[in-house]
């Protein structure tokens, strides 16, 4: 294999990884803080993609701009779902919340199949330009989407570490009971965190719509990406989601070349199992919080 092909595959992987970081970050945040495996996450991403598609088809607004509205809107939906539905079983074992979010996912996903059909749709190219660096060619849309994915994820990370509410979210993740002694209303933090997680899903959906065709059938694939990136990087860590997403993107990209693109899910699953065997706390994660 030539050096230029290797460089191209690596670049493709990094661009994919930037998007995967955005896909995984909200899922990781919710799992880490609420101890809820949010099965709804993939469908929320698809919902974001559809919203971006409609903004583009009806109003001619490109997904980078519509994300500014779509993210908060889906975040608000997430806040309400947590506040009025998931909160009722939040103290139940993780299996119960998993079944609940799985049911919510079925409802949302089948609702989207009904409303939009399972046909693939595509948002037209935003710039359509190709950047060339010597032998490497990179579509500008993909570069912008990947950079936006990483920037949004880092912005959430900065918010968690530098704001009063953000620190409370981190505190609840570390030690729920002690955060209550600080005067934190945990149910409020749970709703805000779930809202933040789904807002990230909505934005990730807009960014995915720039690059990939849209269908409700994508949701399980997105959930898989979030799951693997999360375990790779370390659960509940935003920076971990970025690292995990990028590693997964690069491994998938090389996997497509060496073992064939039809095995990309297999490659991801092998990576997941290897990680769980060798370093179950993730690349950046802690073994335990308490």
């Amino acid at each position: 294999m030539s050096a230029s092909l290797l460089a191209q595959v690596l670049a493709n992987g990094l661009l994919l990884g930037g998007l995967y970081a955005a896909v995984a970050a909200g899922f990781s945040l919710v799992w880490g803080v609420l101890n809820v495996v949010n099965m709804l996450h993939g469908s929320a991403i698809v919902l974001g993609s559809y919203a971006a598609w409609f903004a583009s088809a009806r109003f001619g607004v490109n997904p980078f701009l519509s994300a500014i509205v779509v993210g908060p809107a889906i975040g608000l939906l997430g806040w309400a779902v947590q506040r009025f539905v998931i909160q009722r079983v939040i103290t139940a074992p993780v299996l119960i919340t998993l079944v609940l979010t799985f049911a919510l996912d079925l409802i949302l996903n089948n609702g989207m199949i009904n409303a939009f059909s399972a046909d693939y749709r595509k948002v037209p190219p935003v710039t359509g330009a190709i950047l060339t660096f010597g032998p490497i060619g990179l579509p500008l849309d993909r570069v912008l989407a990947a950079v936006a994915g990483v920037v949004v994820t880092l912005a959430v990370h900065a918010y968690l570490n530098n704001s009063r509410l953000g620190r409370a979210i981190v505190a609840v993740r570390m030690d729920r009971e002690t955060s209550m002694l600080m005067g934190v209303k945990v149910e409020h933090i749970y709703a805000v965190t779930f809202g933040l997680g789904l807002a990230l899903a909505g934005i990730a959906g807009c960014l995915m719509a720039v690059v990939f065709p849209i269908s409700p059938l994508n949701s399980s694939g997105y959930l898989g990406i979030a799951f693997v990136a999360c375990v790779l990087g370390g659960l509940g860590s935003i920076v971990g989601a970025i690292v995990g997403g990028i590693v997964l993107g690069v491994v998938e990209s090389f996997g497509a070349i060496f073992v064939g693109p039809e095995y990309s899910v297999t490659v991801a699953a092998v990576l997941l199992i290897a990680m769980l065997l060798l370093r179950p706390q993730g690349l950046l994660g802690r073994a335990g919080y308490e």
Binding site: N161, A168, A171, M174, M182, Y289
Partner: peptide
């Protein structure tokens, strides 16, 4: 003590003032 692990001393202290805005 139950300090918040992974947070700095100052962030822990600031968490103590959470309720006061």
């Amino acid at each position: 003590r139950r300090l918040f692990a992974g947070m700095t001393v100052e962030d822990n202290l600031m968490m103590g003032a959470f309720s006061r805005r």
